[in-house]
Amino acid sequence: MTATHHTHHHAHAQELSKTDPRVKLIAAKMKKENHKPDALIEILHTAQNAFGFLPKEVLNFIAKELHLPPSRVYSTVTFYHFFSLKSKGEHTCLVCTGTACYVKGAQALLNKIESQFSLKPGQVTADNKLGVQVARCIGACGLAPAVVIDNDVHGKVTEEVIINSINEKIGTI
């Protein structure tokens, strides 16, 4: 596996289909919020939950429906860490780099991941199987260092545990 910074072959621009259940979810959310621009962030949360990230077409769709300039939507999306303009990968490994985790060796975990999978934080493997991210603090400081693999929080992790758990998820063993 090799890392790539920007190419996401599956996320090429394409028309959104109104019958796509994910698009329907976003449309329903906008309706519930009465198409109020105030609800932009709530709607973006819904969109990201549905798509896993925020493709450009989705942003344009939201901007049009809320009667907002696309620049306003784009600037809001890029302001917040939570929103991502590119795929985070089928499986995600999120390493907490909060103070407690930092003091307890989060950097060593990131180094290990980099040497094992050639991935730096924010990168995704070329086959889109695995993405690595860092978090500011997930609030599991009592279990530092903590890592979230997909949606499971792993506490007091060692380099070995993290590599094994990732391999288990991406099915290389």
């Binding site: 909060g98 407690a100 930092y102 500011r136 603090c137 599991a140 400081c141």
Partner: peptide, 11 residues
Amino acid sequence: DEGDPGAFMDR
């Protein structure tokens, strides 16, 4: 919006 890393009181 408990943003301080190392804080989990509010959570």
